[in-house]
């Protein structure tokens, strides 16, 4: 009995020696990146106050007071489906009326800041109206960075189109609407 057991153990050792087995197993890994379309005005959406400066010399034109106090920054984050070529930002006067003889201009800078990706192309200067107009076009997958000094700087100025109808008592509030849309 003992001998048989020893033989069995010997065979066991021989049988299992030098044997090698290779097995392959697998599983799936999936990742879904969602579409993102976020737009923001920085540093905040508080009102800007635009006015005309009084000329220092009679005969000189009335000009809009300017400077950084008339500016904001547009931030966006854009994640695009392959089915959407790009996005653009439209701007319009959503509420209120520009005084007679006056026009409201918005300058849009080229992108600057700490973001990454395919940034939009500025339309330059836009004369605002109640009709939507593209101010930034061809935005690809990108993020501008958050806050002021990231994205596209927008600067407002007032212009005079007709001195004849100007009324010094005209003051009004306008609401400017920005919309991020698929192209």
């Amino acid at each position: 009995m003992v001998r048989a057991l020893l033989i069995f153990c010997g065979l066991l050792s021989v049988t299992v020696l030098y044997s090698q087995t290779v097995l392959i197993r697998e599983h799936s890994l999936g990742l879904t990146i969602p579409e993102i379309a976020l737009l923001d005005i920085e540093p905040d959406n508080t009102a800007l106050n635009l006015s005309f400066s009084i000329p220092s010399e009679a005969g000189m034109p009335i000009v809009s007071s300017g400077g950084s106090t008339n500016s904001k920054w547009i931030n966006y984050t854009n994640s695009l489906s392959p089915l959407v070529a790009s996005r653009s930002i439209e701007v319009q006067i959503n509420n209120g009326t520009v005084p007679d003889g006056v026009e409201l201009l918005m300058d849009v800078s080229a992108y600057s800041g700490g973001g990454e990706g395919a940034f939009g192309i500025s339309a330059g200067s836009v004369t605002l109206s109640t009709a939507p107009q593209t101010c930034i076009d061809n935005i690809g997958g990108s993020y501008t960075g958050n806050g002021s000094n990231n994205g596209h700087q927008i600067t407002y100025t007032l212009g005079i189109t007709d001195y004849d109808v100007l009324d010094a008592d005209q003051s009004t509030s306008l609401e400017i609407l920005f919309t991020l849309i698929d192209n």
């Binding site: 299992v16 020696l17 030098y18 044997s19 090698q20 087995t21 290779v22 097995l23 392959i24 197993r25 697998e26 599983h27 799936s28 890994l29 999936g30 990742l31 879904t32 990146i33 969602p34 579409e35 993102i36 984050t77 854009n78 994640s79 695009l80 489906s81 392959p82 990454e116 990706g117 395919a118 690809g140 997958g141 990108s142 993020y143």
Partner: peptide, 23 residues
């Protein structure tokens, strides 16, 4: 390293494990 600069869609891959056993 996932970013919005990548197309928004579903990505897929397969993880493959190979075991080699020696007796």
């Amino acid at each position: 390293d996932i970013s919005v600069t990548m197309p928004a869609k579903t990505y897929s891959t397969t993880i493959v494990y190979t075991i080699t056993s020696t007796f």
